[in-house]
Simulated scan of single mutants.
Amino acid sequence: MVFTQSSPSDVIATRLTLDEYRAMEETNPERHEYRNGEVITMSGGSEAHSAIASNLLIYLGFLLRDSDFRLYNSDLRVWIPEYQCGTYTDLMVVNGEPELNGIRNDEILNPILIVEVLSPSTEAYDRGDKFRKYRSLTSFCEYLLVSQTEPYIEQYHNFDRNSNDRWLWQVHSNLKQTIVLHSLNVEIPMTEIYRRINF
């Protein structure tokens, strides 16, 4: 089904196979999430959303430029086998070589860090079902949920790779704070994430 999300009460749906979905994504300017046969149109982002995601990509890219970590923006999908789900993140980081989904060069299986910049239409999903799906990936161990309306970031980190039910939660709500990204062993000031963002 293809869902168009202009509002919760205005949903249009049709059925697509996984192959049809992938072919559509190669040529369609809009992005869609695949959820086990259902295809959901991803809503467009705001100027603040784009700027925050860019700030993170630029700053982390500089910090990690000589490391084995690789950063990817929203051009690539994360493939979540357990849920037959392909989705786009605002930013993801892979340790070493990306593990691709079979012969696909646009679907990654092994992110360690995922960042989502929250939007009104996707916030509940990013916090709930999407986070649950991400947690099924064995490589995934850190998650940032970044507000675009105020300096507020929620950080989840799993310190125990052998258990997926021990995620620690931390809130950052002061621009003077620095966030320690445990999975990358780097720090990023809140001021860099929110550089030139006016609240």
Score class of each variant (00 low, 15 high):
E142C: 10
D90I: 00
E26M: 12
L145R: 09
N95E: 14
G45F: 00
S136W: 01
S7K: 13
N95F: 07
V186A: 08
S46E: 08
D126C: 06
A53Y: 08
P111Q: 01
I153A: 03
I114G: 03
P98F: 05
E154V: 11
D75Y: 02
N73P: 11
I80L: 09
V115G: 04
L63S: 13
W167S: 09
I179M: 06
Y125L: 07
L76H: 05
Y134L: 04
T17S: 15
Y152V: 04
Y152I: 00
L145Q: 12
F199M: 06
N164S: 14
D90Y: 03
L175I: 14
V11S: 08
P111A: 06
L56Y: 05
W167E: 08
H172E: 01
E47H: 12
F62S: 14
T149V: 11
N162C: 07
T27W: 08
F131A: 10
W79P: 00
Y134F: 10
Y143E: 02
V171L: 15
M92L: 15
L113F: 03
S173H: 14
Y34C: 03
I112V: 15
A124P: 02
D90S: 03
M24F: 10
H157L: 09
N101W: 12
L64I: 02
N162M: 09
V186K: 08
D129C: 06
F131D: 02
R161T: 12
E82I: 03
G102S: 12
Y194N: 01
R35M: 09
L71S: 04
P111E: 04
L57Q: 13
T149N: 14
A124N: 13
L56D: 04
Y59D: 09
Q177W: 05
R31L: 01
R31P: 00
F131S: 02
V115Q: 07
L76P: 02
R70P: 06
M190F: 05
D19W: 03
S183T: 14
E97F: 11
C141S: 15
L137P: 09
S74V: 01
L144S: 06
W169E: 14
S183F: 01
G37L: 07
K133D: 10
R166F: 09
N105A: 10
Y156M: 10
F131V: 00
R35L: 13
Y88R: 00
Y83D: 11
I188T: 08
Q84S: 14
P29S: 05
T4C: 07
Y59A: 06
A48G: 00
K133Q: 15
W167H: 09
F3H: 14
Q148S: 10
D165L: 11
N73M: 07
F140E: 06
R196T: 12
I112E: 10
Y72D: 08
F199E: 05
V180H: 13
M92V: 04
R22Q: 14
T178V: 14
Q177N: 11
W79F: 14
R104I: 00
N162E: 13
G128Y: 02
D90F: 03
L137A: 07
V186S: 07
F69V: 02
